[in-house]
């Protein structure tokens, strides 16, 4: 029998979606091995979170009311104590920015092998088999972990959210947080992607990526957006390079958009980008690389040079 400990994630009073997905991943693992699923929720209004986490498949929710928001030192200490107390075989956390801010530390301290960004998990006897991507999604791999205990971070939106209607025990865990060991302090939050344009409101987005190559080529895409009366957005590298402001960025760290039509031009479709646009009604990709992940996600694809296709498309609307 192997138990699973999953650590929920919340921010500014909201349980994050990945927490419910984590429950699905955890209950599948627990079911395969006949073990229990324990869910931990740390900081903030833990009783409200515990209620929201009363999901199908959860056996026990452990609450730790310490602090308001995520602090990696607190999470690290508490998760280690819970792990020692419950002795699970598997520790599951989200592969989120915060998940990656404590899971590697917990794994190091407990000497657990760590598999990050898993998109599928199975057990084969005592062995955990994790599916991961490599090379920006160009290939998938299976990794076998031969150990009694393993830490895994799971990618968001790969597992469905667990159904409501569970009836777990809710227990307050008496964690012993050593304040002297807390070397980081969260002083606030800032929203960065404000500004005059709200790309989440657009019906038609013309979105540009690394394939545009040079800043001066951006003019071509702006012309297309004008001709189509569309809104211009972009993938991360364009914003990193300072060619467009942060409020134009589609993706995990930018905006999540759901236009009627999303035209991805010279965008490879890395998972972080796809997280921000996969809800579009219709996705069109223009890309030279037939193996680019975007070509798989797209409803319509043009495998050609954007510098040939875009001028022809502008022509169509003039």
């Amino acid at each position: 029998m192997t138990d699973v400990l999953a650590v929920a994630e919340h921010r500014q009073g909201e349980l994050r979606d990945v927490s419910r997905e984590l429950v699905t991943a955890g209950s599948e693992l627990a079911a395969e091995t006949g073990g229990d699923l324990h869910v931990a929720v740390i900081a903030g209004d833990v009783d409200a979170y515990a209620e929201a986490l009363s999901l199908e498949g959860v056996d026990t929710v452990h609450t730790v009311a310490y602090g308001e928001e995520f602090n990696h030192d607190v999470y690290t200490q508490v998760v280690i104590q819970l792990f020692d107390e419950l002795a699970p075989s598997y520790l599951l956390t989200p592969n989120s920015v915060n998940g990656l801010d404590y899971a590697p530390a917990v794994a190091t301290r407990l000497d657990l092998p760590l598999v990050t960004d898993a998109i599928d998990l199975e057990t084969a006897g005592e062995t955990l088999v994790a599916t991961r991507e490599m090379y920006g999604g160009k290939v998938e791999t299976t990794t076998e972990v031969e150990a009694d205990t393993v830490a895994v971070t799971i990618r968001g939106a790969e597992w469905p959210a667990a159904e409501t209607g569970g009836d777990p025990a809710v227990e307050a865990f008496d964690a012993d947080v050593e304040e002297g060991a807390i070397g980081s302090t969260v002083t606030g939050f800032e929203e960065v992607a404000g500004g005059d344009v709200d790309i989440t409101e657009a019906d038609l987005l013309v979105s540009v990526g690394r394939g545009i190559e040079e800043e001066e080529n951006l003019e071509l895409i702006e012309k297309l957006a004008d001709a189509l009366d569309a809104t211009l957005s972009s993938s991360r590298p364009i914003v990193d390079a300072g060619w467009l402001p942060a409020n134009r960025q589609v993706g995990q760290s930018g905006k999540v958009v759901t236009p009627e039509v999303y035209i991805a031009i010279g965008i490879s479709g890395a998972v972080q980008h796809v997280a921000g646009m996969k809800g579009s009604d219709t996705i069109v990709a223009i890309n030279t690389d037939p193996n680019a992940p975007i070509m798989d996600i797209a409803d319509y694809a043009i495998q050609d040079d954007l510098f040939d296709v875009v001028p022809a498309l502008i022509e169509e609307f003039q």
């Binding site: 791999t141 990794t143 409803d299 694809a301």
Partner: peptide, 20 residues
């Protein structure tokens, strides 16, 4: 290490992309 890479493959295409 305890991790062993046991397989690598191209992801199966689940989409029904129309290619112009």
């Amino acid at each position: 290490g305890d991790l062993n890479l046991t397989a690598m493959y191209e992801p199966e295409s689940e989409s029904d992309t129309t290619v112009f």
